[in-house]
Design a protein around this nucleic acid. Structure first.
Length: 406
DNA sequence: TCTGGGGTCCTAGGACCC
DNA sequence: TCTGGGGTCCTAGGACCC
């Protein structure tokens, strides 16, 4: 989907079309549009039917943003200013102070996500979810899937989604997922791109290695150090050399990817492995000095993850925590139980034990709670032998007591 | 002016078992 | 007088993705 979050917001606020808009960030009072409208226009009620009447000048701007949020999506107009996904909003505010800032509304995005996905599965049932705004589709056995190299079906999907939701998407058609993903980037927004096996050298090899789904910033940096910048450069390397420098499995995969080879099937629904909740604080907190605040946040995270599990019908037996220190270093601790659970009190208790095994003398910027090793509720395998645990000793007992046992 | 939240998968060492 | 070999599970960290 093209600029998905932003495009969904533009459905509600069409008056913002063509303007630089970014979605993201923590909530500020100024971001509470409806609250501000109630003050500015007393007696008028604002609902789905007249949101389009809100004057553009009324929307909050990026200028003066002071929180720790990042951009999740920017409209194409905003991208002109050099702002984009994952950029800190403070930095974005320097680049484009007049951009309109809207808070994220996952509820709404999930709603449109379900809608466009159900349109797709009506047309082509073999669909794989790749998050809220992206899917892989296997056209192979869909009637008409081969017409004009897949272009006919791609167009049908685009048209049907647009007519139902008003949203546009970009489609890449290729012999496998790896190339299709790259192809989908060629013609954004609202484009279709078809890449055949024979187009590898002309269309794929000139691209930066980073365009391969699976080569991130770290691998790219290392590749560049060896003079490998394009996928063609990568394809030219001896696979034995790649394995020696990048590890057996990853080296072999790099070679295959550069040659456009990918045998992964388009797979239908898969079971979740873990669920988690985490939060970055407005300001760094200290285990001792901010003990009460941290205790409340910690309990809330446990309750939220328990509620998520129960709502979706899962329970897990590995309970873990994650901290991020003021220096941005993260640590995790987890513990596996003999029993599966989705109970907030149990999660709170075990997560509290995990907290005792980390250094709490540094200030914290993030706290998270995770439950893993999930099974569908009621299908928990029989209780096994007691766990073999590799003991990690408790640290800094003084600091621990202060908020872990609240 | 620092850097969200929710995930998956991989690696590597140690415990433990046969 | 020198320490097997294979397998699984647990834990921690990290890369990567949307």
């Amino acid at each position: 989907m093209d600029a998905f979050y932003a495009s969904v917001e533009l459905l509600r606020y069409p008056q913002l079309k063509g303007l630089p808009v970014v979605i993201g960030g923590g909530r500020r009072k100024e971001d509470d549009l409806l609250g501000r409208l109630a003050v500015a226009y007393p007696g008028q009620s604002w609902g789905t039917e007249n949101l389009a009447d809100i004057p553009v000048d009324f929307f909050p701007r990026l200028a003066g943003y002071t929180g720790r949020g990042v951009i999740t999506t920017a409209t194409y107009a905003a991208r002109q200013f050099g702002v984009g996904s994952a950029m800190g909003l403070m930095k974005a505010a320097k680049l484009c102070p007049d951009a309109i800032l809207l808070p994220v509304d996952f509820e709404q995005y999930r709603h449109y996500s379900r809608r466009f996905k159900s349109i797709i599965t009506d047309i082509a049932p073999l669909m794989e979810n790749r998050g809220v705004d992206e899917v892989y589709i296997d056209f192979t056995d869909v009637p008409g899937g081969q017409r004009d190299g897949g272009r006919v079906l791609a167009r049908l999907i685009q048209k049907t989604i647009f007519e139902d939701t008003g949203l546009t998407c970009s489609v890449g058609v290729a012999p496998n997922k790896l190339i299709a993903k790259m192809a989908s980037e060629f013609n954004k927004p609202n484009g279709i791109s078809i890449v055949h096996e024979a187009d590898l050298q002309t269309l794929i090899w000139p691209l930066a290695c980073r365009k391969i789904n699976g080569i991130g910033p770290k691998a790219d940096e290392k590749l560049q150090q060896h003079g490998i910048r394009t996928i063609g450069d990568l394809a030219a390397r001896d696979p034995i050399w790649l394995k020696a420098h990048f590890g057996k499995a990853y080296g072999a995969w790099l070679h295959e990817a550069a040659w456009g080879r990918d045998e992964r099937p388009v797979s239908l629904e898969s079971e979740p492995v873990s669920m988690s909740r985490e939060t970055t604080f407005e300001k760094d907190l200290h285990a001792v000095r901010d003990r009460q605040t941290l205790g409340q946040i910690f309990t809330r995270l446990c309750e939220q993850v328990a509620a998520d599990l129960q709502r979706k019908g899962y329970e897990g037996k590995t309970i873990g925590i994650k901290l991020r220190y003021d220096n941005f270093k993260s640590v995790t601790r987890d513990q596996t139980l003999d029993l599966y659970t989705a109970d907030p009190a149990t999660i709170r208790q075990v997560a509290g034990q995990c907290l005792k095994r980390v250094d709490l003398s540094r200030r914290l910027r993030l706290l998270g709670v995770r439950v893993g090793s999930l099974v569908k509720q009621g299908t928990a395998p029989a209780e096994g032998q007691p766990n073999k645990t590799s003991e990690t000793p408790d640290l800094d007992p003084q600091a621990q007591l202060l908020f872990t046992d609240e």
